[in-house]
């Protein structure tokens, strides 16, 4: 089950969120590996610790809180937790990139999409001026944005939700990360757009041999996308199995309950 050559190896990760009002043990000892080029799904309901786990790897804390981490996060030969903030900034975005649920709030509304990507390219890859813009257009094209050269000069509000999510994915892959963390990337989107984004993520992953950590509450999203699934509940991984096994023979009661709750097209309901 354990990957032979893990790019990410997490052991006994704990995360305690300290905010003004309360202290929450959000992650209570989580261990898993993600191999090079492998896609792993993390499935669970809100509050199960899946997003905190992802942010802990990136060492990001929710606004207005402080997070105390324990355990180890080993990424491509480096231990991330004791790393300095400056060194961590170099890992973030360049080696590990993240795509969030809400494509509205993740982009700066007053800067054109192209300028936002140019900026990241200049900072992380040292490309300058025209070279950066050429790369930006190429990236926008790769994520399936039509007429990328023109769209680069548009502002975020001129894009639909799905197109905005494509822009975020373009930003995420701009520095060729080894690991892409996608946190509920399609939850805010329509089914038709969701299908397009999932296809895009699948294609990019295969083209670039990048590892993918796909976080969702919806088993339908992970079904065709990942090789293995970790089911999280109450800050712990309660079931870890290959995607085929988990759909065919879920062993944990919670996994079964989650699977049973997914509305399906092939089962007649009790509708009046």
């Amino acid at each position: 089950m354990t990957a032979s050559d893990p790019i990410l190896s997490v052991r006994d990760l704990t995360a305690r969120i300290v905010s003004r009002k309360q202290i929450v043990d959000a992650v209570k000892g989580v261990s898993f590996d993600i191999a090079r080029g492998e896609a792993v799904g993390f499935v669970g309901e809100s509050g199960c610790g899946k997003s905190v786990t992802a942010r802990a790897i990136m060492r990001l804390a929710p606004e207005g809180t402080r997070v105390e981490l324990g355990g180890s996060v080993h990424f491509d030969g480096q231990e991330l937790l004791p790393m300095s903030e400056a060194a961590m900034r170099d890992v973030r975005g360049r080696r590990i990139a993240m795509v969030f649920q809400d494509p509205m709030t993740s982009l700066n509304p007053v800067i054109t999409v192209g300028a936002q990507i140019d900026d990241i390219l200049r900072r992380h890859t040292g490309l300058s001026g025209r070279a950066a813009r050429a790369r930006t257009v190429e990236l926008l094209d790769q994520v399936g944005i039509p007429a990328p050269a023109q769209r680069a000069d548009d502002y975020p509000h001129q894009f639909s939700g799905g197109m905005r999510q494509r822009v975020l994915i373009a930003i995420a892959i701009s520095c060729d990360p080894d690991l892409l963390i996608a946190d509920e990337p399609t939850t805010a989107l329509d089914v038709t757009v969701q299908a397009q984004i999932l296809r895009l993520l699948l294609r990019l992953r295969e083209e670039r041999g990048m590892s993918l950590m796909l976080i969702t509450h919806d088993f339908g999203v992970v079904a065709g996308m990942v090789e293995r699934v970790n089911v999280m509940y109450g800050g712990r991984i309660v079931e870890a199995a290959s995607v085929d096994d988990i759909f065919r023979a879920p062993t944990h009661d919670y996994t079964r309950a989650l699977l049973a709750a997914v509305p399906r097209l092939d089962r007649h309901g009790v509708a009046p």
Partner: peptide
Amino acid sequence: QMLFDSAPVLDPSLQRQRLRMPPPEP
């Protein structure tokens, strides 16, 4: 039909096949 084609199915191998088909384009 496009809506039906977009809805994920809870069968990993079938869903993998569906994701490899060209996407529905409204």
